[in-house]
Design a binder for these strands. Sequence first.
DNA 1: ATTTAGCACTGTCCTTTATAGAGTGCAAAA
DNA 2: TTTTGCACTCTATAAAGGACAGTGCTAAAT
Lengths: 353, 353
Amino acid sequence: MTTSTDSSQLSERSLHLFKALVEHFIDDGTPVGSRTLSKDSNLGLSPATIRNVMADLEDVGLLHSPHTSAGRIPTAKGYRLFVDNLLRVNDLQSSQVEKIAKELHPESDYSSLMQRTSSMLSDVTQLAGVVMLPRTEQSILQHIEFVALSANRVLVILVVNDREVQNRVINTDKTYSASELQQVSNYLNELFAGKDLLHVRKSILEELEKMKEQVNQSMQSAIEMAQMAFNSDEVKKESDDLLFSGQTNLMDVAELGEVDQLKKLFETFNQKRDILHLLEQAINADGMQIFIGEESGYDVLDNCSVVTSPYEADGQILGVLGVIGPTRMHYDRVIPIVDITAKMLGAALNSKN
Amino acid sequence: MTTSTDSSQLSERSLHLFKALVEHFIDDGTPVGSRTLSKDSNLGLSPATIRNVMADLEDVGLLHSPHTSAGRIPTAKGYRLFVDNLLRVNDLQSSQVEKIAKELHPESDYSSLMQRTSSMLSDVTQLAGVVMLPRTEQSILQHIEFVALSANRVLVILVVNDREVQNRVINTDKTYSASELQQVSNYLNELFAGKDLLHVRKSILEELEKMKEQVNQSMQSAIEMAQMAFNSDEVKKESDDLLFSGQTNLMDVAELGEVDQLKKLFETFNQKRDILHLLEQAINADGMQIFIGEESGYDVLDNCSVVTSPYEADGQILGVLGVIGPTRMHYDRVIPIVDITAKMLGAALNSKN
DNA sequence: ATTTAGCACTGTCCTTTATAGAGTGCAAAA
DNA sequence: TTTTGCACTCTATAAAGGACAGTGCTAAAT
């Protein structure tokens, strides 16, 4: 940002016209000319006057002309000014609030709640929705359970962080009975419940190895199974994951031009890496965050804006959610939707409910 | 199918040329002309002769010309003949077999295994992969477990059908201790383990209601919680679900023309309904099944072929997997990949490992 | 000092026209 | 039966022209 253009440097009239132009463009998608804007803004000014104003706005970098004889469209900087200073956010229709609330009712398991949040976002906004799952730096093991599947196959279920359920199958040397497994579960729960997963894996398992010779036969089994259960990277790093929905909505957006560009965008979604970085920036900013076009720093998102809000439960920020759409999106509708979704998801995740 | 055109009605030479044409078109994507085909097939025939043959092939409906002065391309019927009678399937490269095997190692939990299978399919074939999860008409409850999350919130974990883990959170009136929940788990396991889920829900719960007055206090809790756990449609109908991967691969396919068409196709994926119907047809046909273009009966798939194979474990067909791509796909590569994937997934799911 | 009208200018979009190229079908020759 | 020769058809591509939208600038009007 070399030249800072705050709204105070511009006349009231310029801002009014600028706002009208942005709104018109958001509705229409076609560059806005002086004649159109003359009618659109109720200032009773002739096109010629408006042309002068537009030229000024272009000079300070808020507008931009695709070519000589087209109208003007907002630049990223222009959208920034619009969003920060000019935008008046719409109230949500109660029907929409109801729809959001309906999808976010807390009576459902954790992962499907997140999934539904994401697809609800895309559905309501008609853009692409994204939910970043809690970054699980500290994964507190709450409960571990073993279930016999068949001979030599045991299902391990880990309950982590009060909500997340992970499970995997391990192959064992011997066949365990249900009651044996129950014993092992009890033993391990006593030992590990409430501890951090990483900690469990790294240090405690080593100690178990030492203990191995000193304890009795049945505990040996427990130790072996614990080792298999917690072993290596097989324990899902389900954290830091992203849920996308409604990418197809973006296919309507003319700004995203042709198949090539769309494909790049979709592949960015699939790789998740870049989007993840972006959202990690947003998790620290407290409150709603809006990345407009090139601001994001990722080429594929040049014509896109990302509206995000962190969500929190029990006073702790858990993750970020939001939508991705064309820079030319209805910020006045989208912003309150993302906002209320974050709040309601937080409420749904709140343990005191 | 009014006119049946079996290969015996055509001369050896016609078939040879037809095969060469299809192969050339699959490689190239452009309509094949007589001159090209003359060089391509080592028959030493002049373009004019070939033109005559091509005209015959067009008459019987195997070929089709986009316009007067273009070459010919195969019709759906043509592909059908090609696939059924002319195709010689390639052997798989061992590197590919290894890649498949690597992704399908059985040491992982059920849902991620399925997910990986799907994305592996799309990765190896460079088409869209799809895996249909077991249709769970009979869901045998194997194990039920309650875990206290926080005051008034209890996590219910159901293990179904030897592999699948479902979970949800229920809000309870009173707060249960770990040992109380253990008791409830035990009680319900004794009562319900090995029973069919639908059966459990529909009839047994009613009987429980009657029993309610007759049993003691702690069992009342168990009954109430069981009711909440099994209640209504909240129990995930995770069965009959589809996993897609690699849709973006289809964006390269010229046949799928423009954004509109792609969008329709992607939305068909998202709705899942049509694809599900298609795969349900494939589950009954024993063995590999190939739907070519319009054969599928779904307009959006007009330029697509679907190659599927059911997969089975313990002698029972569990579901269907396959790939979706342009009719003009390399069947010789794709078919063995789908085939071996189905077999290896079956092996990975086999309890006797 | 602004604002407006007038006007030449510039770029896009769309339609028309021309041309080259690919491939066909058919008739007559091999 | 196959091939040659040839007229014909259709596409794709580029070039050319006109309609249109909107600009910037100058000079007149308020």
